[in-house]
Each structure stands twice: as structure tokens, then as C-alpha cells.
Measured scan of single mutants.
Amino acid sequence: TEEYTYTDKEKADRAAKEWANRGYTVTVTQDGPTYRVRVG
């Protein structure tokens, strides 16, 4: 499991979509002003 942190919702959504397109399980959680994209 890897985790990426973004401050921009659009970038987080785009990253999540790209990982999902590659067949990974993706979870996006909002943590205050940041968005965490957990992959795998």
C-alpha cells in the first residue's frame, strides 16, 4: 500500500482515476486541507 498526499482536490481525483484505470484499488480520504490517495 502506498499513500500520496495532495493539497489540490482536482489533482487527487486525477491521480485516483489514473491508478484505478491501471487496476489498483484506490481510496481517497480528506484530511483537513489535504487529500490522501491510498493505492493498493
Rank of each mutant, 00 (worst) to 15 (best):
N21Q: 12
K11W: 08
N21L: 11
K17H: 11
T5G: 04
E2Q: 15
E10D: 13
Y4V: 04
D31A: 06
D31Y: 08
R36L: 13
Y4D: 03
N21P: 01
K17N: 12
N21W: 06
G32N: 01
E3A: 05
E2G: 12
V37F: 04
Y6A: 01
E18S: 07
A20V: 12
A20W: 11
W19F: 12
V28K: 02
D8W: 03
Y4T: 04
R38V: 14
T27E: 11
D13A: 10
V37P: 01
D13P: 00
E10G: 10
Y35P: 00
Y35A: 02
T29K: 06
E10P: 04
Y24P: 00
R36Q: 06
T5N: 07
E2L: 15
T25E: 12
W19C: 12
K17G: 07
V37D: 00
T25Y: 12
G23H: 03
Y24R: 05
Y6F: 14
A20T: 09
Q30G: 06
A20D: 05
E3N: 05
N21A: 14
T34Y: 15
A16Y: 05
D8A: 05
Q30R: 10
V37W: 00
A15T: 05
Y4K: 04
E3Y: 11
A15L: 05
V37Y: 00
T27W: 07
R14N: 12
A15P: 00
V37I: 08
P33V: 07
Y35H: 04
V28L: 07
T7Y: 13
A16V: 06
A16W: 03
Q30N: 07
T29G: 04
T1E: 12
Q30I: 10
R22S: 10
T7E: 10
V37N: 00
A12Y: 01
E18W: 15
T34V: 15
G32V: 01
T29Y: 14
V26F: 01
G40M: 14
V39S: 01
A16T: 04
E10L: 10
K9D: 03
W19M: 06
T1Y: 15
E18I: 09
T34A: 09
V26G: 00
T1M: 13
K9T: 03
D8S: 13
Q30V: 12
N21T: 10
T29W: 12
A15M: 09
G40K: 13
T25A: 10
R22K: 15
Q30E: 08
E18Q: 08
K9R: 11
N21E: 15
A16E: 05
T27S: 10
R14K: 13
K9N: 04
T1W: 15
T34L: 15
T25Q: 12
E2Y: 14
V28P: 00
G32R: 01
T29V: 13
T5Q: 08
R36W: 05
K17A: 13
G23K: 02
D13Y: 15
A20F: 12
Q30H: 08
V26R: 00
G32D: 03
D8K: 05
T27D: 06
T5D: 06
K17P: 02
R22L: 15
R38T: 14
Y6T: 05
T29R: 06
P33N: 12
E3K: 04
E2D: 11
G23D: 03
E3H: 06
P33G: 11
T1G: 13
K17T: 10
V39M: 03
Q30F: 07
A20E: 14
K9M: 06
E10N: 09
T5F: 14
D31Q: 08
A15R: 04
T7N: 11
N21G: 12
T1S: 11
P33Q: 09
T29L: 12
Y24D: 01
G32I: 01
Y35C: 01
E3T: 11
A15V: 10
E2I: 15
E3I: 12
V39P: 02
T34Q: 09
K11T: 14
T5M: 11
T27P: 00
T5E: 11
G40Q: 14
R38L: 13
V37E: 00
E2M: 15
K17S: 10
Y35S: 02
A12R: 02
G40S: 15
R38S: 12
W19T: 02
E18L: 09
D31P: 01
N21V: 09
P33L: 09
T34S: 10
T25N: 11
A12F: 02
E18P: 00
R36N: 06
T1D: 10
W19Y: 07
G32W: 03
K11S: 15
G32S: 02
Y35M: 03
T25P: 07
D13N: 10
E3M: 07
T1L: 12
V28Y: 04
E10R: 09
E18T: 05
V26E: 00
G23A: 02
T34D: 07
G40P: 04
V28F: 04
G32T: 02
E2T: 15
G23P: 00
A16P: 00
E10K: 10
Y4P: 02
Y6V: 02
D31L: 08
R14Q: 14
R36G: 03
T25K: 10
A20K: 12
W19D: 02
A12N: 00
Y24L: 06
V26W: 01
T1F: 15
R36D: 01
T1P: 10
A20L: 14
K17Q: 13
G23T: 00
R14S: 11
W19E: 02
V26A: 06
W19G: 02
A16H: 03
Y35N: 01
D8F: 03
A12M: 04
R36Y: 09
A12Q: 01
A15N: 04
V37S: 00
P33E: 12
Y6Q: 01
V26I: 04
Y4G: 03
T5A: 08
A15S: 06
V37G: 00
V26T: 05
T25I: 13
T27R: 05
A15I: 07
W19L: 10
K9H: 08
P33H: 08
E10Y: 09
E3L: 08
N21C: 15
T34C: 13
G32Y: 03
R22T: 05
D8E: 08
K17D: 13
R22G: 09
Y4R: 04
K9P: 10
P33M: 08
A16N: 02
V28N: 02
V26H: 00
D31G: 03
K11R: 10
Y6C: 03
A15H: 06
G40N: 13
A15F: 07
Y4Q: 04
R14T: 11
V28Q: 05
D31T: 07
E10W: 11
T1A: 11
A16D: 01
T1I: 14
Q30D: 05
T7G: 08
K17Y: 11
E3W: 11
T7Q: 10
R14W: 10
Y6L: 01
T34K: 09
T7P: 10
K17W: 12
N21M: 11
T5W: 13
V28S: 03
K17L: 14
D13F: 14
E2P: 08
Y35F: 13
T29I: 14
G23E: 02
T1H: 13
E10M: 09
R22D: 10
T7M: 11
N21H: 08
T29Q: 08
T29D: 07
R22W: 08
V39E: 00
R22M: 15
T25D: 11
T34H: 13
G23S: 02
G23I: 01
A16F: 04
D8R: 04
G32H: 03
T27G: 04
R36S: 07
E2N: 14
A12W: 01
T5P: 04
Y35Q: 01
R38P: 00
E10S: 10
T7R: 10
A20P: 01
T34W: 14
Y35I: 08
A20S: 09
P33A: 09
Q30S: 08
A12T: 03
T34M: 13
A12I: 01
A20N: 07
R14V: 09
T25W: 12
D8P: 01
W19N: 03
R38Y: 09
D8Y: 04
Y4E: 05
Y35G: 00
Y6D: 01
T5R: 08
T29M: 11
V39A: 03
Y4S: 04
P33I: 07
Y24G: 02
Q30P: 05
D13G: 06
V28E: 02
D31I: 12
E3Q: 06
